[in-house]
Design a protein around this nucleic acid. Structure first.
Lengths: 210, 210
DNA sequence: CAAATATAATTAACATTGTTAATATATACA
DNA sequence: TGTATATATTAACAATGTTAATTATATTTG
């Protein structure tokens, strides 16, 4: 039946929307089956008619958040001139997204998954999250010879590890203990990797430094 | 009374030892009040006569593990010639420690703390964990002019963020999905930061690459 | 040494969690 | 309309952290 599929999809969406809302607001620590079901307007057991378990549901949100993050980044960087400066701002915007929604950082990088087996695509989305957000900018830089193509993977990986390390220590261990110090650190790390060392930043995201 | 203090200290040690044993073995996910108390040979409620709550107890283990990690690193690197090579091996050994005991990585970097207020010293131990392990080696390099002192903090931070990012993705997201690829990544990142780019590694820890 | 008191350890109990089984309700079809 | 099927809800379970009540054990005091 076609109706059944439509209805099932709708039901799933109700639960997914509820889960996303909690993750963006109270965060992962406030996620519970009863909490989600409340927000969706159903009983907690109903959830199990549409999802294997609560992890299944939670990790379905990853794709939506990744899309949202990408849009967030684009809206924050479209004024920056294309090129390495825009790469830098893109990475900054990526960081800002997770600082604004720490619960989503928890979901992407900290949450434990019961069964990794059938979630490989989700894991891949997460692992490529930053690359995905930066992809078109990298392509631009390569096409304009703004960076040697053989350095591309190296830059991507360095940025990925640095950004995750920075966010983890700041969001989870309050190190550094102020936002401005954290942003200074991020600025320095990114400049270092992209070879913008001499750097007086003039790009837009400097405004976020508070 | 002095006896009371001695006895109290002993009791605390029993619980701490039990907690450490579980963390090193089954990992953080297997920690529970009843589990710890079982291993310590007491009832679960007894724990609350000596610790405010279970987080209090868990985070007391951090200092011991940091010490253990330092000894682990020393034993793995003492044959390497002092200098930047030994810095590199030290970082590798640090990584190996957490790969061997992923539960301790969870404790150090992933575990959520209910109340950050009175745990600031613990947070500091964690945030300075890698620097602490490398400290004497950095001092050596500085004293022999093997690296300019004004670059010291930069190197420390770059290594810290890269190492935490690498470990987080590997241990928590299985990325890269093989140990040897992970070690290759680590090798590359460390070389890059320390300026050993041309690199054919000859130091001891290469043996761990499996 | 024995009784009274203080201290420490245990069991009982509660609220919250994820999940499953049993039951009720709505929908589809004859 | 009445029966079969699908879907939603309540009840129940086991495990969690934590606190209160209770029991056992030391310690002090006569």
């Amino acid at each position: 039946m076609k109706n059944k599929e439509i209805q099932e999809k709708r039901m799933k969406e109700y639960f997914i929307q509820a889960t996303k809302s909690i993750l963006k607001g109270e965060g992962l620590k406030s996620i519970s089956v009863r909490n989600i079901a409340d927000q969706a307007g159903y009983s907690y057991a109903t959830l199990y008619n549409y999802f294997k378990d609560v992890n299944d549901l939670i990790f379905l949100c990853v794709n939506d958040f990744q899309e949202e993050c990408k849009l967030f980044v684009i809206s924050k960087t479209k004024k920056t001139p294309k090129g390495l400066d825009r790469i830098k701002d893109t990475v900054f915007a990526y960081i800002s997204y997770f600082v604004e929604y720490p619960g989503i950082f928890d979901l992407f990088y900290l949450a434990r998954v019961g069964d990794f087996g059938n979630k490989q695509t989700t894991i891949n989305v997460i692992s490529n999250s930053l690359d995905d957000v930066c992809e078109s900018e990298w392509n631009y830089c390569i096409s304009r010879n703004l960076l040697p193509i053989e350095k591309l993977d190296s830059f991507k990986n360095q940025l990925k590890y640095a950004v995750i390390g920075l966010l983890l220590l700041y969001l989870n261990r309050r190190t550094p203990d102020s936002y401005s110090e954290f942003m200074d650190q991020a600025n320095f790390q990114i400049d270092n990797i992209l070879g913008l060392n001499n750097s007086n930043r003039t790009s837009t995201s400097i405004k976020n430094e508070n």
